[in-house]
């Protein structure tokens, strides 16, 4: 992959608030696929929340409810070999990457059938097979890692891109900007996806950020960016398509600010007093990513209530199976405490 040496023509960034009246449209198949994938994440997360309350899941558990359209839309343009890396709010990303809900749920309950054999928990899961690189608990740390994965793509000369997700809060960490500089300097194929859900724990974007337009955060490095309605899966997919084209074309990194919202508290132990109930309610009622697709399918007569109910039932069955597995699988063997500290091939002495 050779970066073009002609002057770069940047994809025209869309300015201001997204949600164009005339958004990109989906075929019936795309609508149904998006519906199914988002619903899987929603139902999975709802059950994870319940299981936390019952004490079957411990520690921190950060739910993705409300943000489903972001990872779903992006994964609709991913191709074989593209990589994904994100923070601790990672269950949705794993499901979107095609990881097995049983293995994810079993990791949440700390069982041996979990993706990390029960050793990682909610925040730390990985899948080489699905090119999912975690699952990181330290805010911002995944950004240089994603940049390094993109470096490896360029080094190998393949045309894969690394989708590197981080939050609006993480966007203030210094290592993000160190990464931006290197990524642009070396034209690395990385799509930086800022999931701007308006809050970092209890701190709203306006209380933490001097510049709240995250799509502009790459400007001083010459990295283009755009703001996207992250509640509309069609807009997400279209933006992701432009971004991956840009990266695969050897133009270097790009930033997508996904404007989204988390319905639940930051983690299970967040009383969420920093925002009003009305604010949450309004987002749920007027912008819910799943409801939007549902309404379009029904009003456009592209699907019947019964068809959607059947998808619902299928998704519920998948989740029920995952829950069942995750509640009955055995805890890890005590001997696992000592394994995986060093790679067996280099663990001598």
């Amino acid at each position: 992959m050779a970066p073009s040496d002609t002057a770069r023509s940047k994809p025209a960034p869309r300015k201001g608030k997204a949600t164009p009246a005339q958004g990109p449209s989906f075929t019936r198949e795309e609508e149904l696929e998006a519906y199914r994938r988002m619903l899987l994440i929603r139902r999975f997360e709802e059950r994870a929340g319940q299981m936390y309350g019952m004490g079957l899941i411990g520690g921190f558990c950060h739910l993705y409810i409300g943000q489903e359209a972001v990872v779903t839309g992006v994964m609709m343009v991913a191709k074989e070999g593209d990589q994904t890396i994100t923070s601790y709010r990672d269950h949705g990303h794993m499901l979107a990457c095609g990881m097995d809900p049983k293995g994810v749920m079993a990791e949440l309950t700390g069982r041996r059938g979990g993706y990390s054999k029960g050793k990682g928990g909610s925040m730390h899961m990985f899948s080489k097979a699905k090119q999912f690189y975690g699952g990181h608990g330290i805010v911002g740390a995944q950004v240089p890692l994603g940049t390094g994965i993109a470096f490896a793509n360029r080094y190998r000369g393949n045309d894969n891109v690394c989708f590197t997700y981080f939050g609006d809060g993480a966007a203030n960490q210094g290592q993000v900007y160190e990464s931006f500089n290197m990524a642009e300097l070396w034209k690395l194929p990385v799509v930086y996806i800022v999931e701007n859900n308006r809050y970092a724990m209890g701190t709203s974007v306006t209380r933490s950020s001097a510049l709240t337009d995250f799509s502009k955060r790459g400007q001083s490095f010459n990295i283009p960016g755009e703001q996207v309605d992250g509640m509309d899966v069609r807009a997400v997919k279209a933006a992701a398509q432009r971004a991956t084209d840009w990266c695969r074309g050897g133009n270097g990194p790009i930033i997508l600010e996904m404007q989204t919202y988390r319905y639940r508290g930051h983690s299970m132990s967040d009383p969420a007093k920093y925002r009003s109930k009305e604010e949450v309610q309004k987002m749920r009622e007027e912008h819910d990513p799943i409801e939007q697709v549902r309404q379009r399918l029904l009003s456009g007569k592209q699907a019947s209530e019964d068809e959607l109910k059947a998808i619902d039932a299928e998704v519920r069955a998948t989740i029920a199976e995952a829950v069942d597995f995750a509640s009955h699988d055995a805890e890890p063997d005590p001997a696992e405490l000592w394994t995986d500290v060093l790679h067996p091939a280099g663990a001598g002495l």
Partner: peptide, 16 residues
């Protein structure tokens, strides 16, 4: 503490 990173699973955490 045991000479390993802290595991998540309840039984392993206790052992660590």
């Amino acid at each position: 503490g045991k000479d390993v990173p802290m595991p998540y699973a309840a039984n392993l955490e206790k052992l660590a």
